[in-house]
């Protein structure tokens, strides 16, 4: 570029301006508005998200539906099998597609559970932790039989489930084998499809029929009636209607509890999950409603 500019300067093609300005002169003559005086420049910034015709895949045919269902069912069974391992640490890896340089960084992607990586918001042991499945970091090989002749000898101890840290074939390792090993067949026989999930709400509540669902229903009805009675929010906020306040307080106590329980169980199974508490509730209508009519929260 500079070479060309220099040549231009020597040739004297540049109009006014000093000798070294040849390049600029050339550019001045060839810009669009220099060549075409009538041009109207469109100074608007280009649209950030111009309309784009997103190609849509055709709907699944019946056969494809079947294939996908079979695959998902198979995956579900696989993840249930004793050989499946998963110890993903979401908090640490901020995206698996991040570029990595070298093995060290790559290894960091796979989270290791240590005290340093514990999430302080969810790590406090609570009751609902009982329901949490502990992810398996190593496959449970000792629980099922293998055709050992097709494995290299270095793996034989591992296949028996005798591969302990000490790597000694002591009595500790032997103890694990209890009874005959059997190949467990998966008991999972269905995989939830989206259609199954999109059932009408009425049916959902009817099927639920549990105490929790019923009380939830009652609570919602109650909230409705209160709202009708009071007409506007200010009445509640000023606390004029004492009767209602007291009633609301009493009722809301249980319902509030039930709601809280539900909420905690739903979100992450923690008593105090601050992140979800603030994030999750901003778009949470149920909670807002409860807050509005139940003056007891103030």
């Amino acid at each position: 570029m500079s070479g060309r500019g220099g040549r231009g300067g020597r040739g004297g093609r540049g109009g006014r301006g000093p000798l070294t300005n040849g390049r600029r002169a050339v550019a001045q003559n060839s810009v669009p508005w220099a060549m075409d005086g009538d041009i109207v420049l469109d100074g608007k910034p280009s649209e950030l998200f111009p309309p784009y015709d997103v190609p849509k895949a055709p709907l699944l045919s019946r056969k494809e539906e079947k294939q996908v269902s079979y695959f998902l069912l198979f995956r579900e069974q696989c993840q249930d099998s004793p050989l499946y391992t998963q110890a993903r640490n979401w908090t640490q890896s901020s995206g698996t597609t991040a570029r990595t340089y070298g093995q060290d960084q790559l290894n960091k992607r796979y989270g290791q559970m240590s005290k340093a990586t514990v999430d302080p918001f969810t790590a406090v042991p609570t009751y609902s932790h009982r329901f949490k499945k502990v992810p398996r970091t190593l496959p449970d090989l000792g629980s099922r039989p293998f055709a050992k002749d097709f494995f290299p000898p270095e793996l034989h101890a591992t296949l028996d489930g005798d591969d302990e840290h000490s790597s000694g074939n002591g009595p500790v390792a032997k103890r694990r084998r209890v009874g005959p090993k059997t190949l467990g067949l998966s008991n999972i026989t269905s995989y939830k499809t989206a259609e199954e999930l999109f059932l009408p709400d009425a049916q959902q509540l009817g099927v639920g029929a549990g105490a929790g669902a019923a009380s939830m229903d009652k609570a919602l009805q109650f909230i409705d009636t209160i709202e009708k009675q009071n007409g506007d929010e200010e009445a509640i906020l000023s606390g004029e209607d004492d009767d209602d306040w007291v009633k609301g307080n009493g009722e809301d106590d249980e319902d509030g509890n039930a709601e809280e329980d539900d909420q905690y169980e739903d979100e992450s199974g923690d008593d105090y999950n601050a992140e979800a508490y603030f994030d999750g509730n901003q778009d949470d209508e149920d909670y807002d409603e409860g807050g509005d009519d139940g003056g007891d929260y103030f």
Binding site: A57, L72, K192, A194, L197, V207, G208, D283
Partner: peptide, 26 residues
């Protein structure tokens, strides 16, 4: 899932399942 999860969560879950199906189908 249907009985124990709250509605929004449940909807998010079913939306996710639908996406998953579509992606695998693709």
């Amino acid at each position: 899932e249907k009985d124990t999860m709250r509605k929004e969560y449940y909807e998010r879950y079913s939306r996710f399942l639908e996406c998953e199906r579509k992606l695998f189908a693709q």
